[in-house]
């Protein structure tokens, strides 16, 4: 890890091929993000928030430059290595929750631990802990279809947090939620960030989210337009 930072992005460019040419979604990105940050990529639609988040999440690769996450150059990892990185150190929270419909709450939260080949008692303990964090003990046997949107997103926070990853990436986590539920889950994540020192990175244009951020990285047309710390 460079300079004690979890994430170091250097002169990074992302091009998407379109027809014969390409579309530049990210240009000249230089960014570092450290431990325990509660940061947000903000900007209008199409500014490249999701693209940047996906590269940090090793789901996509830079076209030029370097994105170093926890000491790994994302562009240089093979499929197995990037899967390992996500498996051990990264948690994801999606706008549409992406829970597995045929699993109940407990099983959904347990899945990342199964992928880590953790033994049963340990899994049980960690899943319970995660369900406590999000206050969903009483819904452990419910399937996603039986839950409200806010509850689904809390399950997905529990799933992202259960293995206590270094970094949690959340792409528009409140876009499908009403104000009350949005505040609710943001407070949950803020608490987890404070207590566990987990780094949270959001991609959002939701004012409700922005008011919680400790750092606001503004993207515009694929470039970092502004990067400001917010005093709390």
């Amino acid at each position: 890890m460079k300079n004690g930072q979890l994430i170091t992005i250097t002169d990074m460019v992302k091009d998407y091929p379109i027809g014969k040419g390409y579309f530049r979604a990210l240009e000249d990105i230089n960014l570092t993000i450290g431990e325990g940050e509660f940061a947000g990529l903000v900007g209008p639609s199409g500014s490249g928030k999701t693209t940047l988040l996906n590269i940090i999440g090793s789901l996509d690769v830079p076209s030029k430059g370097d994105a170093n996450v926890l000491g790994h150059s994302i562009g240089q990892l093979n499929a197995r290595q990037s899967a390992q990185l996500r498996n051990h150190h990264l948690g994801f929270i999606f706008q549409t929750y992406n829970l597995l419909p045929v699993y109940n709450v407990f099983e959904n939260v347990e899945l990342p631990l199964l992928l880590l080949k953790m033994e049963k008692n340990k899994r049980y303990e960690l899943v319970n802990q995660a369900l406590d964090w999000v206050g969903l003990q009483d819904k452990r046997k419910s399937r996603p279809a039986q839950l409200s949107g806010g509850e689904c997103q809390r399950v997905s926070i529990a799933r992202a947090m259960v293995k206590q990853p270094k970094i949690v990436l959340a792409d528009e986590p409140t876009a499908n939620l009403d104000a009350e539920n949005s505040h609710n889950i943001l407070q949950t994540m803020e608490t987890l960030n404070r207590d566990l020192k987990t780094t949270f990175i959001f991609a959002t244009h939701d004012e409700k989210v922005i008011q919680y951020l400790h750092r606001k990285i503004s993207l515009f047309d694929g470039k970092v337009a502004k990067d400001e710390q917010v005093k709390k």
């Binding site: 999440g57 789901l59 499929a79 197995r80 899967a83 390992q84 996500r86 498996n87 051990h88 994801f92 999606f94 549409t96 992406n98 829970l99 597995l100 419909p101 899945l111 990342p112 992928l115 880590l116 799933r159």
Partner: peptide, 16 residues
């Protein structure tokens, strides 16, 4: 598809 993407985000390779 989303489920597949989710499995990958949670740390599975496509082959898995």
């Amino acid at each position: 598809q989303k489920e597949i993407g989710t499995h990958i985000a949670l740390g599975m390779t496509q082959k898995q």
